[in-house]
Design a protein around this nucleic acid. Structure first.
Lengths: 213, 213
DNA sequence: ATGGCAATTTGTGTATACACTGATCCTGAG
DNA sequence: CTCAGGATCAGTGTATACACAAATTGCCAT
């Protein structure tokens, strides 16, 4: 593994997991000492992070961790609804039934994964991630897939903020199952509608938990 | 101006203007000599270009200029229709009438700009660019705007490929005028429809000229 | 003659030294 | 006491040297 990859992965993790708070200044020398690599790979890592939007260049004085405001969340979900709605519709038209029927069945049993003692809901999120990957593969549109991927980075940060509870995750699993079912049935409009519904509920939940702070 | 910015701007221009053909290997040492800067800024420039998708890393052996296939064009326009359709609808809801009424009037007179002797249609594209900027500003959604900006880079390459002729540009100006008119009228569905129509015709034209090769 | 192995070469990955810029702090004058 | 100006310093921007990996080429053996 290259040193620049290590630096990138570490910094990215630290930002996504909120170990590095928004507004934190990431100086090159400071981070190179912390990560045990030289400045060069740190520079490349920071450059990549800025390209993704996780950090923003602060005029020759290092880069700062990007903040996420309530407006940002609204904007992100607005774009997300556009992209994922289209993606679900395309997947319904172009995807293979069998893949999504299998995912549908698994998602209906997802409640078992949530009742576990695993606080990070690792298996549950892995299953949802597989649905995302299946849609990405089904749409056969690398540009759309790329746009969704770059947005998901930011959405993971929001998810960490929302601290999903079991009831919400159970409901979300049902919503995901509905999306998979609609795609498996080849019903584009239904898949898009199910996606819209799911995202609206997700956004409502995020904003509800966020306003409690 | 920083050396890395210069290297980035030069390479980007060369790729967009097709002076660097797809498949061309951009070696760091070679480019650093050509551009008169050291390897470090060239590295950063190549890194940025790869993040944008104009180049792709070729497994430790330099980066290669990305190719654009017919499927790529289809995929790009599929995403473009999704993004710009939504953007036009949002602009109709949130934009200021006056701005788009003015653009509408200007676009109706755009034929004068095209009949000029300017082969690059500089003024015409500047006017269309101002419509794009106005929409970007009106939607007040930085994530959507960012997604469109990153896509436009690739679209400029396609445009250079299509070699727009005067008849097509005249028709496109009318289509753009229709979009601006719908936004100015605050009619979201009409704005989206006008955008869909325009993009379908653009795509048809691109594919028609492309198939002549 | 052909195939395999080794050596050389080419190019990237990383480290570090140096230069330059922007900011901050201290000092002196009003 | 306050403000302005300069000096110092922290930190990035750039260059370059060195290490390492891979590919290519040449030579030797079969």
């Amino acid at each position: 593994m290259r040193a620049s990859d290590k630096a990138y992965a570490t910094l990215r993790e630290d930002i996504i997991e909120w170990r590095l708070a928004p507004g934190t200044v990431l100086a090159e020398v400071e981070q190179s000492e912390r990560l045990g690599v030289s400045r060069t790979p740190v520079r490349e890592a920071l450059s990549r992070l800025s390209a993704e939007g996780l950090t923003t260049a602060a005029g020759g004085r290092g880069v700062v961790v990007t903040d996420i405001s309530l407006e940002d969340i609204d904007e992100m979900f607005e774009l997300r609804e556009t992209l994922e709605g289209k993606a679900a519709a395309l997947a319904a038209e172009r995807g293979e039934r069998a893949v999504f029927e299998k995912l549908h069945a698994e998602l209906l049993r997802a409640q078992e994964l949530i009742s576990d003692a695993d606080p990070a809901r690792h298996e549950y999120y892995a299953l949802v991630g597989r649905l995302d990957e299946a849609i990405d593969a089904a749409i056969s549109n690398s540009y759309l897939a790329q746009a969704m991927r770059s947005l998901r980075v930011h959405l993971v940060r929001v998810r960490r903020l929302a601290a999903d509870d079991a009831p919400r995750l159970n409901a979300a699993a049902v919503e995901h199952a509905a999306i998979a079912e609609a795609i498996a049935a080849g019903n584009a409009r239904l898949a898009e509608a199910a996606t819209t519904l799911h995202l609206h509920r997700s956004l409502s939940h995020v904003k509800a938990t966020h306003s409690q702070h």
